[in-house]
Design a protein around this nucleic acid. Structure first.
Length: 314
DNA sequence: AAGGCGGTCAACCGCCGGGAT
DNA sequence: CATCCCGGCGGTTGACCGCCT
């Protein structure tokens, strides 16, 4: 069932590229452009897979690539965008001129995630690690236990990607333009600045511990917010379309702003709520929405500042 | 001086979405 | 409508390098 290989692997060279190969590839792309990578190796006289050629070009040979170290501003932007987008490296890289997704991914994995951990911030959820411990505890109490657990798994298997919940909420709130996130979420929207002087002190910084009930307590408000946000998104979608051109090139086209099922307001408790969120994420193309938001330069211009500078406080 | 170890980063792999046929 | 093929993506690997013991 698998796809046939893109090239004859027996006759293809692998491993590091030599300067001669780089020169051939560069000469070819400079005169013929970069279309149809499968033909490039043959036409350029390279014993390489077309995929390998594309990767080498886009990650290393492409003009206007930056090869110097990441700046503080770039670091901050990566952290901010990762908090919103997760590991959508291509989308993140689109916001960093001269950087590739591979650059950003490597930099994150080797440097930034460690920096965050050292500051007590979980690099996946961008929340204080201490809060996550409390969240797990609260979740174990609140979530209904499965009647049977064939695999012997715990209820924590219900967990969606933790960033997804605040992400959906925050985007909806922001897009609506008139709504305030609940105070708890404002507090918990931790966008860590990696060069902060003081080590993170979650207990001191967060008087209120994060609980999943924070997301459930105001279901009615959340449902109303989601509904209102979806309506606003329809309008926003058109307004943002013009500005989204550059970024949209990196994201799939689709029905951005489409209504999301029955809305985010599950009313049957945590499990239903989480299911709704997961369904929502699948249906709506949230990433495109985020891309549109990001296409507005004002949205992330203050990314190195606190979250209150990022448009949360409408 | 030599071996071990960890960090970095270029490159590869497999999957997926979408356009072409 | 089904299939094929290409480009793009994220995760992972492995070579290389510098530091430490």
């Amino acid at each position: 069932m698998g796809r046939p290989p893109c090239c004859d692997k027996a006759n293809v060279k692998k491993g590091p590229w030599t300067p001669e190969e780089d020169a051939k590839l560069l000469a070819y792309t400079s005169t013929h452009g970069t279309g149809n990578w499968t033909n490039v190796p043959q036409r350029a006289g390279l014993k390489r897979c077309g995929k390998s050629c594309r990767l080498r070009y886009t990650n290393y040979l492409r003009p206007n690539l930056k090869h110097e170290n990441f700046t503080q501003e770039e670091e901050d932007l990566i952290v901010t965008l990762h908090a919103m987008l997760g590991s959508r490296w291509s989308l993140i890289a689109n916001q960093l001129p001269g950087r590739t997704d591979n650059d950003v991914k490597n930099y994150w994995n080797t440097k930034l995630s460690k920096k965050l951990r050292q500051r007590g911030i979980d690099p996946i959820t961008h929340r204080p690690i201490a809060d996550l411990m409390h969240s797990i505890g609260a979740l174990a109490i609140r979530l209904p236990q499965p009647a049977h657990s064939p695999s012997g798994g715990s209820s924590s298997s219900y967990l969606p990607a933790p960033a997804a919940l605040p992400l959906v909420h925050d985007v909806a709130y922001h897009a609506a333009g008139i709504l305030q996130p609940p105070p708890q979420q404002q507090q918990q929207a931790v966008i860590a600045r990696v060069d902060a002087d003081a080590p993170a002190s979650p207990a001191a910084d967060h008087g209120q511990q994060l609980k999943w009930s924070d997301f459930l307590a105001d279901d009615a408000a959340a449902a109303a917010a989601a509904s209102e946000a979806q309506q606003a998104l329809g309008q926003y979608h058109h307004e943002a379309a013009a500005a989204a051109g550059v970024l949209a090139a990196g994201s799939s086209s689709g029905a951005g702003g489409r209504a999301c099922g029955d809305g985010g307001g599950g009313d049957d408790g945590a499990a239903a709520f989480i299911d709704a969120i997961l369904d929502c994420d699948k249906e709506t193309g949230v990433d495109q929405l985020i891309a549109e938001l990001l296409a507005d330069p004002a949205y992330y211009a203050g990314s190195s500042s606190s979250s209150s500078d990022m448009g949360w406080g409408c």
